[in-house]
């Protein structure tokens, strides 16, 4: 019959289409849209997780860098402190040594001076005695006792003044 004829076929075709739509909805679209949604959710959550972990790692790196910088600073400070302290110690030791040396020198000098004085005194004393003895011996025959004493006193006074 006619090439272009509308008849009951169209309605049956439409019913067929609805059946196909229903079956495809049950078998294809529903599971596929579900799986696609699930996949999207999974990808999104994993991306978010990755982003979170990346941020965490970045923070940890920053923290580590901070710690490292702090440690470096502390180490530098320790080193410089130690250096300073050692310098101080050296200086102190030097000063102490110098002082000690000075003290020893001074005491030695004082000792020497004392010894010298003592020696001088001794010498003086001895010289006096010797001189008196000598004079006594020389003057034994010449002067009487009184004159001897006056003469000696004069000599000694002169010696003291000198």
């Amino acid at each position: 019959m006619g090439f272009v004829e509308l008849n009951l076929t169209g309605i049956i075709q439409l019913l067929n289409f609805f059946i196909l739509l229903f079956v495809l909805y049950k078998l294809l679209y529903k599971p596929f849209t579900q799986i696609m949604d699930k996949r999207r959710e999974k990808v999104e959550s994993e991306l978010a997780q990755a982003e979170k972990e990346r941020k965490e790692a970045q923070e940890m790196r920053k923290e580590a860098e901070q710690i490292l910088a702090n440690a470096r600073q502390i180490a530098e400070r320790i080193v410089s402190d130690a250096k300073q302290k050692s310098d101080e110690l050296i200086t102190q030791a030097k000063n102490q040594a110098r002082e000690e040396a000075d003290r020893i020198m001074n005491s030695a000098r004082a000792q020497i001076e004392r010894e010298k004085q003592a020696a001088l005194d001794e010498v003086e004393k001895r010289a006096g005695e010797i001189a008196v003895t000598l004079a006594m011996k020389i003057l034994q025959g010449v002067l009487d006792e009184k004159a001897k004493k006056e003469y000696l006193i004069n000599v000694l006074k002169k010696g003291q003044n000198q």
């Binding site: 019959m1 049956i12 067929n16 596929f32 799986i35």
Partner: peptide, 29 residues
Amino acid sequence: RVNPLTIFMTWIIMFVIIIVVYRFRKPKL
């Protein structure tokens, strides 16, 4: 009046589509 060939071929096509689609009723992630 109906065109049986149209309807019959439609059923064949529907059958083919459903057979193919049935294999994928449980899609994998």
